[in-house]
Simulated scan of single mutants.
Amino acid sequence: MNPTTALTVRDPWALVPSLGNLDAYISAVNRLPLLTQEEEVSLARRLRASGDLQAAGQLVLSHLRLVVSISRQYLGYGLPHGDLIQEGNVGLMKAVKRFDPDQGVRLVSYAMHWIKAEIHEYILKNWRMVKVATTKAQRKLFFNLRSMKQNLKDEAADVDTHRSTLTAAEVDTVARTLNVKREEVLEMETRLSGGDVALEPQSGDDGEESFAPIAYLADEAHEPTRVLEASKRDWLASDGIARALDTLDERSRRIVEERWLKVNDDSSGGMTLHELAADYGVSAERIRQIEVAAMKKMRKALAEAA
């Protein structure tokens, strides 16, 4: 079967099961046909020339197995394999979007950087080491310390196979190789070798739940939904109102500002309908009608912006 034909179905993603069934997903992506260099270049040019989403889908599908392969390298950080694959797929899609087929490089080589970068970012955001790995050098230390420790042990002829910590000489070697401070190596090793603490309460043999950190670490003020709601309220009260006012004509804008957005020196509020009516030489009812129409227009503008 021609690879392009195999992928050009109406819904190519129907060929791939959900990541909820990881074994089925991996089996499916490994059966997807690879593209020849000519097919890859043709699809990439279609994508760049006209934003062809079907071409983008074929490029992504044919490289899903690469994401699976790369994600296996990061299973030692205690994060679900499915999540690592999902983040790697995001990196793959970014690579496909930016890929230039005329540079003479295959997509597989170009995409590796984007896939690894996205997985690295996910691990750093979600693993317990995030606060240590802040600089570029520390990130390099974070992702290389485990493998370097094993290599140093293998190179030592008289090594104690049960020893898990680095010797002083090995700490110096790691620090010099990765261009970080000796103290950073020691701190990183301590954190890497530390055990995880369960946040949720665990049921004991007697059926009673233990007291866990989740009971005292909860902070409703920083709960994501509340943070988003507060952020939206802040935006509506500042930039949102400003944008909505920009949709009004000069008279309507002044009426809204005088009625609702200004406070007099005596804190009695803005101008009354009658005061504005006197200014414009129309009836108070006409000012009210303009105000109602302006408020309706602003509400529509805010709804569209949100």
Rank of each mutant, 00 (worst) to 15 (best):
P3M: 02
A6S: 08
L7P: 06
D23W: 00
Y25F: 15
T36Y: 05
E38F: 11
E38H: 13
V41Q: 12
S50G: 14
L64D: 10
V68P: 03
Y77T: 06
P80A: 01
G91V: 02
F99I: 00
V105C: 12
L107D: 00
S109C: 06
S109H: 11
M112G: 09
K116M: 09
I119R: 00
K131F: 03
V132Q: 13
A133R: 00
T134S: 03
K136W: 07
A137N: 11
Q150E: 12
D154I: 14
D154A: 15
D160F: 03
S164C: 11
T165R: 14
T165V: 12
A168N: 14
A168D: 15
D172V: 11
L178N: 09
E189M: 11
S193W: 07
S193Q: 15
G194P: 00
G194I: 08
G194H: 11
D205H: 06
Y216M: 12
A221Y: 10
T225Y: 06
E229R: 11
I241L: 13
S252N: 10
V256N: 04
E257C: 09
K262Y: 15
V263K: 09
D266L: 13
D266P: 02
L273H: 08
L273V: 05
L273W: 06
S283T: 14
E285P: 00
I290F: 05
A294F: 04
K297E: 09
M298H: 05
L302S: 02
E304N: 05
A305L: 12
